[in-house]
């Protein structure tokens, strides 16, 4: 049996927002297997962003456990979480989040930089990924000099550079026109076809149709869990 990539057990997340105590996740169970392409949907405030941050090891659970690739990371400290982020997670953001003063290659290399990968090795890997993303002509350019689609391609290359076991995408097409968005989605489909495990947050139903699995959130709880159009509990 396959070890699941993501396994959340009674995951609970509470915030203190001023005097208010907000419960963002009310004890959810979620399992995502290797190679799955899951879309998470829900209104804003439903807890989907919180979930994504937790999956990305940017945040701690208040209660419950999170196993990433079989490893319980609920109790890890900040440095250990940083290490996990750099080695096992690939982030793709809505607003690309490239570092403005670095060029395309340097941006792609950032995760390797923090892993301590020697520069020539990192350079080779970045070049290879940039080529694959169709950015060969743009290697020395700064993000400001690129189109939105190109920037997102750089971000995808960057998310792939450390061979993550889990790719997290937060509205990756939100800032793009539909044609460019389509191209990016096709790229993600391609990655999925290669066997990457992908979790994507969106509120676009058209996008959701591309995924094999749709998880809907409301008020911090999973209200539906659908595989290929078939609901399953």
């Amino acid at each position: 049996m396959n070890v699941p990539i993501v396994e959340l057990k009674s995951a609970m997340k509470e915030y203190v927002n001023g005097a208010l105590k907000v419960t963002a996740l009310r004890g959810i169970d979620l399992r995502i297997d290797p190679g799955e392409y899951a879309v998470i949907m829900g209104a804003s405030g439903s807890g989907k962003s919180t979930l994504l941050n937790l999956l990305g090891c940017l945040d701690h659970l208040s209660r419950g456990d999170y196993l990433l690739g079989g490893e319980n990371i609920s109790k890890l400290n900040d440095d250990e979480l940083s290490e996990i982020r750099s080695r096992r997670i690939g982030f793709i953001f809505q607003s690309y989040n490239l570092i403005p003063q670095l060029n395309v290659l340097e941006n792609i290399e950032v995760p390797l930089f923090y892993q301590g990968v020697p520069e020539p090795v990192a350079r080779l890997k970045a070049e290879e990924l940039a080529k694959r993303m169709g950015l060969s002509e743009r290697l020395g350019h700064k993000p400001m000099e690129l189109s939105g689609g190109q920037q997102q391609r750089v971000a995808i290359a960057r998310s792939l550079v450390c061979d993550p076991i889990l790719m997290l995408a937060d509205e990756p097409t939100g800032n793009l026109d539909s044609k460019t968005g389509q191209e990016i989605l096709e790229l993600i489909d391609e990655l999925h076809a290669e066997g990457k495990t992908i979790v994507m947050v969106t509120h676009d139903d058209d996008i959701a149709h591309r995924a094999q699995r749709v998880v809907r959130f409301m008020d911090g709880e999973i209200i539906s869990n659908v595989w290929n159009g078939e609901p399953k509990v």
């Binding site: 290490e83 570092i99 995760p111």
Partner: peptide
Amino acid sequence: IREIGIRRALGARRSD
């Protein structure tokens, strides 16, 4: 601040 957030998300430790 944004850059710091990005770097942290991509694996930078506090000490980095």
